[in-house]
Design a protein around this nucleic acid. Structure first.
Lengths: 138, 138
DNA sequence: TATTGTTATACTCTATAACTATA
DNA sequence: TATAGTTATAGAGTATAACAATA
């Protein structure tokens, strides 16, 4: 049974994606929207093009995602004073507050499952595996 | 920085999905189609409902995926003699031949990347991490 | 009645192409 | 010309709802 690992990964990605999507209604954010918020929180303000490159999508696709977040009041854009073409995107104070409330209430389904159903050793293995999978995405 | 692992996984899934999709044109199969073929090869013939449950999608969605594979001549359905409602789906000889040719030609992009860019130790870590991620998909 | 599978329809995510505004 | 971003359009993947055929 040779190419098991590659085949496993292919199958796994689709299933995890659907699983995450199924939980999305809990916080009202789709997976791509979550990814953008996570990135802006960790790495600070960014432009549309930068976000698109980081997530591996076209600027048009990222534009659609960001437009929803702007309409929800979670992300705001301010014009770059040095370059009139660029808009710097950042999380709003309301979004920061929501993230904090969400975490203190332990509402993150995925984080809870990881904490509840995996031993510390397994969590370490999981983290190591995730780091390696990131390399596959490049 | 607490919920890093969960956030990493969320971000990772989307990126890996887009990466796999980008390679799909090489073999002419979309990720869901690949998943079905992999499953039928490993576990043998199955019904539409069984496949849908195993992949975590509705039977309507699986029906659409299988319809494409049937039209391509990779999957064939034969009526179950015991239960007239069911159709048993299986890979065609042509599909088996394609899979074999594909593997001997080492054309699987993902399998090649794993073999080339990961040490045996890393591959073991990767395999362990993938097993744990499978549990998350339940 | 319950189950298998199909048809119709809609929404999300992403892509390509064509455009505007600024550099 | 080149880059940042927008608008228009299309396709893949999946869902819900309603149905037909068989058990």
């Amino acid at each position: 049974m040779p190419p098991t690992l590659a085949a496993d990964i292919r199958s796994l990605i689709g299933q995890l994606r659907r699983r995450l999507k199924k939980e999305a209604p809990r916080h009202g954010l789709t997976p791509p929207e979550q990814a953008v918020i996570i990135r802006l929180e960790r790495e600070g303000p960014a432009t549309l093009t930068t976000l698109a490159q980081a997530e591996g999508v076209r600027s048009q696709s990222m534009g659609a995602t960001v437009a929803v977040l702007k309409a929800s009041g979670l992300v705001a854009g301010t014009p770059d004073p040095n370059d009139g073409r660029q808009t710097v995107l950042a999380l709003t104070p309301a979004c920061h507050a929501l993230l904090h409330a969400h975490r203190t209430a332990r509402e993150d389904w995925l984080a809870q499952v990881i904490a509840a159903r995996f031993t510390p050793e397994e969590q370490a293995t999981l983290a190591a595996g995730v780091e390696l999978l990131k390399r596959l995405a490049d």
